[in-house]
Design a protein around this nucleic acid. Structure first.
Length: 937
DNA sequence: TTAGGGTTAG
């Protein structure tokens, strides 16, 4: 009696005082100990019984085994009981056998469970169910379904618990046809109206992406518990219907009392792909208010929420303040660091896990391996590889994949291949990682060979395979041999309907130089997503079609598509290249409105746009304060100051950057050297050039060398420039000789100019610029017979000079002008305005520099031809079509002519207008008779 | 019976 009421003290007293005890007394006492949860004492008691040879009943043994499972830390005691049971023949009892297999399942030893299960002479539905529970808890739904099939073959009748397990496993496997099969079974079995079964059905349909069925079941349930509500909320959440999932939460609070931590976790998981700005901080507050901020799982989702929004600092804060952390918390933060590019922090986290003896799983290693993506981290990656082998995790499929991926990303392809070959099973992820590595680091042949081997091994390719293989064909010259055959394969294998594959095809054709095929694919695609549009933006940008990029961006907007970071970056950089401030400003405004203000790429693209549109004030205003400025931001700032002639600011900024501990990069030095070159700061430029290798260990690239040649050449130090070319660490290219030729033109050095021109023609026989530059060099020095011979050579080789043109953009209309153009509808007014300008500036001291006229004619003719220059026509048109006092913006496809430059200066003084001119190379910013380039360009 | 961490591409 006492044991039945849980009163163990009096029961124990009575037992101890009993003069005679029979089997029943011992068994009753032991059951009592189990009932009150004194499991360890029960096991000791049982040992004593065994020693004394007291018989026990199968019921008592089963309850004892169950107790060992329930305690969570009594596996070894359970195993001892198992040993006794095996010796005394109790295993043939179905209750005992089931209890033991359940015990092993609880401790994750499913193979032991299965062994016991297979040796059992009799099994009931609970035995089958217990086996399922083991696999389900281990996260192996395919095994659960295997057991389900076995049960059906043997004709076992299902109970509520086993049916629920089967249903949810089916959902996890996302196997729709199995789902339908199971539904039929559920209806026949008569278990359909059981609460747990209905809950599982809601959850299964959620996992299968069939939200309508999930909702139907939920709506028709006769009773609902918290799990039902949570399941429907999760169904909405998993399928991206975040508003609905919040609505469920709202209804729950009205119609159902309980909201538990699972509800909150579900809601938080939605915030991964929802507008973080709108919901994130509020939800965090709510979690604290409801007192769930101490539940590990809730905190983990909270952490994941910040991580998904790219806010690793906040995620870190959540982690630090968690009252209890589990393995998933550590792994989540590590993954967050990896996603945010904080590789060192991620690896540090793994180190402290190991150092403090925390448990580490294959997931921890997977994240750590993903952190090692660049050459500097190769050593760390190799150590991890060693650890993986030592800890016996090498055979884990996902670890193997992560290893191949790591070596692939770094470009250690022989290592990547070696790991792949050692893997017990090579799945498509492993092959894709290898192919991706080849695509990134080696030639297309390697990637294609790997693809063929993969197919020969019978591993089915998926869309990612196709995307990866296509990624190896992103260069001109491989279209016929590789690109087109791949496209043919894609069509025949049925991958063409996949939007990702189509996007990659668009990119492939564009990078192979066939933009019209990209355009074709794009036009024929009806399920375009943002990535499709982005691929098309990149395709046009790659071909230098900035206007088309902007047109596409505005189409995206008119179709109501959500522009993402990539679209904005691409749009802004197109606006920067075209120097169209208005479009750039609009895009930037929209990006800010949509919450992308903090995005590093967009921020830099916008700053660069303002920079290239001449709005230096805006650049300085918008860049983050120096304390958290990224390297690209510093580079943009240096370039901006250089572009506008603030050379002291250039040096100041560079030194500030060094003081902040930022290591300058390749681009920083390009910006610095260009600034020096434009400012005529020759010695300072040379000093910076020396710093590149001496102080920062960077190997000078061809761009840096071109800058130095420009620097020396423009200032007339042509002999030094020539010596520099002969000694520089990289092979001279066309830009080198073009720069030298340009300088020879400025300084009238005909001999060196000729030599440079010869080198240039060898490298670029089709290029018109060499002929134009030589011809201009001869013309400005009056060598008209040489001008004529260059012209004849051009005719002979059928090389056409690129026509100069200038344009003005007013509202949405672009007006373009060629030399002496008379096609504009307002031509008469334009030429009249030009006459006014001529008169006005001559009165204030303008004298034409006729050496800039490149024909051998008399002075008057020369002056006349200067007044036909496209940039003057554009200027006249712009002045007459824009309000008094406003800034005039003009573009030219080639370099501005020297005399036009002087005309612009005079006009800016006489009219008081600010004029901004973008030519092929740079920006000129005229105000009150002075140009920002200080006449040195 | 419901919720949280991982590998390939983008």
């Amino acid at each position: 009696m006492y044991t039945k009421f849980g009163r163990v003290k009096p029961a124990r007293y009575l037992f101890d005082e009993m003069p005679v005890r029979n089997e029943a007394s011992w068994n009753t006492m032991m059951s009592g100990l189990v009932r009150v949860g004194l499991y360890e004492e029960a096991v000791d008691f049982f040992r004593k019984m065994c020693d004394l040879g007291i018989k026990t009943s199968s019921f008592v043994i089963a309850s004892l085994v169950t107790a060992c499972g329930r305690s969570g830390s009594m596996l070894s005691e359970g195993v001892q009981v198992h040993g006794f049971v095996a010796k005394s023949g109790f295993l043939s009892d179905v209750f005992v056998g089931t209890a033991i297999l359940h015990l092993y399942g609880v401790y994750g030893l499913v193979s032991c469970s299965r062994k016991v299960f297979e040796e059992m002479p009799d099994r009931n539905v609970v035995s089958w169910t217990s086996l399922m529970v083991g696999y389900s808890d281990k996260g192996e739904p395919e095994e659960v379904i295997g057991i389900y099939k076995g049960m059906r073959v043997e004709g076992v009748e299902f109970n509520e618990h086993s049916m629920s397990l089967v249903i949810s496993s089916c959902g996890l496997l996302k196997d729709e046809s199995l789902g339908h099969q199971i539904i039929g079974h559920v209806i026949k079995s008569g278990l359909k109206s059981k609460l747990a079964v209905e809950n599982s059905l809601v959850s299964m349909f959620g996992n299968l992406g069939n939200i309508d069925y999930a909702k139907y079941i939920f709506d028709h349930m006769s009773e609902r518990d918290t799990i039902s509500w949570n399941s429907i909320a999760a169904a909405y959440a998993q399928n991206g219907h975040c508003e609905e999932s919040f609505w469920v939460f709202h209804l729950m609070r009205h119609f159902h009392d309980e909201v538990n931590s699972t509800t909150v976790s579900t809601l938080l998981s939605v915030l991964d792909h929802v507008d973080h700005q709108k919901w994130g901080s509020g939800i965090h507050g709510l979690v604290i208010k409801m007192g769930f901020d101490s539940v590990v799982c809730v905190c983990n989702t909270l952490l994941r929420m910040y991580s998904g929004a790219g806010r690793s600092e906040e995620a870190e804060l959540v982690f630090k303040e968690m009252p209890a952390k589990d393995l998933i918390s550590w792994n989540s933060l590590m993954a967050c660091f990896v996603e945010d590019g904080r590789s060192v922090d991620a690896l540090g986290l793994l180190c402290s896990m190991i150092r403090t003896g925390k448990s580490v799983s294959y997931v921890s290693f997977t994240s750590a391996l993903a952190a090692c993506f660049s050459l500097e981290l190769l050593d760390k990656g190799r150590i991890l590889h060693g650890l993986v082998v030592v800890t016996g995790l090498f055979d884990n499929q996902i670890i193997g994949n992560a290893l191949v991926s790591m070596y692939g990303k770094i470009g250690e392809m022989s290592e990547a291949r070696r790991v792949l070959l050692q893997m017990p099973r090579r799945d498509e992820v492993a092959w894709n990682a290898l192919i991706g590595g080849y695509a990134e680091h080696e030639d297309p042949n390697k990637a294609l060979t790997a693809f063929r081997t993969m197919r020969a091994e019978g591993v089915p390719a998926n869309y990612i395979t196709m995307v990866s293989v296509l990624g190896s064909c992103l260069m001109p010259g491989v279209l016929l041999e590789h690109g087109k055959p791949l496209h043919a394969y894609i069509v025949s294998a049925g991958f063409e309907s996949d939007v990702h594959v189509k996007n990659s095809l668009i990119t492939m054709y564009a990078k192979c130089g066939d933009l019209s095929s990209s355009q074709d694919l794009f036009n024929r695609l009806d399920d375009r997503n943002v990535i499709t549009w982005n691929a098309m933006l990149a395709a046009n940008a790659h071909h230098g079609h900035g206007e088309e990029v902007l047109k596409l961006v505005s189409k995206m907007r008119s179709f109501g598509l959500n522009l993402d970071e990539f679209s904005f970056t691409e749009g802004l950089s197109a606006a920067a290249k075209l120097a169209v401030l208005e479009e750039g400003q609009q895009l930037h405004g929209l990006a800010v409105k949509l919450g992308f203000e903090q995005d590093c790429f967009i921020l830099n693209a916008a700053a660069d746009m303002y920079n290239k549109c001449g709005e230096i004030g805006e650049v300085v205003k918008m860049l983050p304060p120096s304390i958290n400025r990224s390297l690209p931001s510093w580079n943009i700032l240096i370039s901006a100051y250089g572009r506008h002639g603030y050379f002291e600011k250039v040096c100041e900024t560079f030194h500030e950057m060094l003081e902040m501990g930022i290591k300058p990069g390749h681009v920083t030095f390009v910006s610095l050297l260009i600034a020096c070159s434009h400012g005529g700061l020759v010695d300072q430029g040379l000093a910076y050039y020396d710093m590149i290798t001496r102080d920062f260990g960077i190997k000078p690239a061809i761009e840096h060398c071109v800058c130095v040649i420009d620097l020396l050449g423009r200032s007339g130090r042509l002999a030094e420039a020539e010596t520099f070319i002969s000694k520089m660490p990289v092979k001279p290219n066309d830009l080198v000789w073009r720069s030298l030729l340009g300088s020879c033109k400025i300084h009238g050095d005909l001999d060196r100019g000729r030599k440079a021109a010869e080198h240039l023609t060898k490298l670029e026989p089709e290029d018109d610029s060499v002929y134009v530059l030589s011809s201009n060099m001869f013309a400005t020095t009056g060598r008209w017979e040489d001008v004529e011979s260059v012209r004849k050579e051009m005719d002979l080789k059928n090389i056409k000079k690129k026509q100069a043109c200038s344009w003005v953009k007013l509202k949405d209309k672009v007006s373009t002008f060629g030399i002496g153009d008379r096609t504009h509808p307002q031509t008469l007014e334009i030429y009249a305005k030009l006459e006014d300008i001529k008169k006005l500036i001559k009165e204030s001291g303008y004298v034409p520099d006729t050496s800039q006229a490149l024909q051998d004619t008399d002075e008057e003719q020369k002056e006349h031809s200067l007044w036909n220059h496209s940039e003057r026509l554009a200027l006249a048109y712009a002045l007459m079509s824009t309000p008094e006092g406003s800034t005039v913006r003009i573009f030219k496809n080639l370099r501005i002519c020297g005399d036009c430059h002087s005309v612009y200066k005079f006009v800016s003084r006489v009219t008081g207008r600010r004029i901004v001119l973008r030519d092929q190379y740079r920006f000129h910013h005229f105000e009150s008779g002075v140009c920002s380039c200080k006449d040195y360009w």
